[in-house]
Nucleic acid binder design. Structure first.
Lengths: 170, 170
DNA sequence: CCTGATCTTTACGTTCACGTCAGTTTCTAC
DNA sequence: GTAGAAACTGACGTGAACGTAAAGATCAGG
């Protein structure tokens, strides 16, 4: 097997910044706040070295921040839970824990997940509601346009470029 | 008909703050930034007087800020569009606009709505994806718990209070 | 009409989430 | 081994989104 359990850290902070589309400053700041559970290795010189897993975690942190719209402080709470989950997984990987303990750990993990799911779910509901409202307003407007076009047909030539309005690149 | 088109403004800034669950400072700040399209009336004294419609608009602004996670600057852009829509509605209410103009106005309104919908839609998709991921992780954990309980039955008494983990009030 | 609560503007203070600079050290390439 | 790029640790700066304090004007109730 040539796939090592944990790849050797080889990425420098600038590389990580580019890969995660952010800056070294932000990475150090997040580390300072404790948002990045496992600190980077620092062989010999003081330079931080990261793995791809670190990049993924960083991206996930930024994603949560973006999607949940929470402060870095609140985010840390959530990630502390995540970290606990990681610890749980580590302990679970060893086969020498008794079933009672195993169950306790799994129940904890479940609690952490549920906490995040709860947050996400609330937001999703709110967003869905907003989306629905906007969609209905949109429908009404479109209906009025159709009515206008129908009534005006023969009198004014309908200008049929409505669908293209309000589109963004992508 | 005893329902006036526009109710007389009677709410003071402190009332509005309480109704919208914010502070007078924030309201003045938003007004300063131009986030509140129609400025409050100021009869005789310099005190601002608001209507319930103003409260609703303020709440809507705060809601958008919360749900879309945009800066007040970006939010202003969106609300400027909203304002334009309002102006459109006002012009449309008068019956003396010719159909071509009417159609143009409606098309504009549609564009503004689509712009907001686009934003909301993107976010909703991202959130849904996150939710799905979390849900699947949750399933896996629950499955492991069930397996554990099944295997342990007879040896250890299963502790069946897992569903209650990580719940919040409401 | 008087008093206390609420409002006004002006202005400075604060927290968050980084940006930026300085001086030094370490890595990479030649 | 030496130049240049990148990283290190402070430290101070900054824009956004308000909070807070001051000094005065205004409003609502008795």
């Amino acid at each position: 097997m040539s796939a090592p359990e944990e790849a050797i850290p080889t990425l420098r902070i600038g590389d990580v910044a580019k890969l995660a589309d952010t800056t070294p400053r932000t990475i150090r700041y997040y580390e300072e706040l404790g948002l990045l559970p496992n600190e980077p290795s620092r062989p010999s010189g003081g330079h931080r070295l990261y793995t791809q897993a670190d990049v993924d975690r960083l991206r996930e942190v930024m994603r949560l921040k973006h999607l949940l719209g929470v402060s870095l402080g609140e985010l840390k709470e959530l990630l502390t839970a995540e970290e606990a989950r990681a610890a749980v997984r580590a302990e679970l990987r060893r086969d020498d824990v008794n079933p009672a303990r195993r169950r306790e750990l799994l129940a904890q993990a479940l609690g952490h997940i549920d906490r995040q799911l709860d947050l996400v779910h609330r937001r999703a509901l709110e967003l869905a509601k907003l989306q629905k409202e906007l969609s209905e307003t949109r429908k009404r407007v479109k209906r009025r346009i159709r009515e206008l076009d129908a009534h005006a047909s023969g009198t004014y030539a309908p200008t049929p470029d409505v669908e293209a309005a309000g589109e963004s690149r992508s």
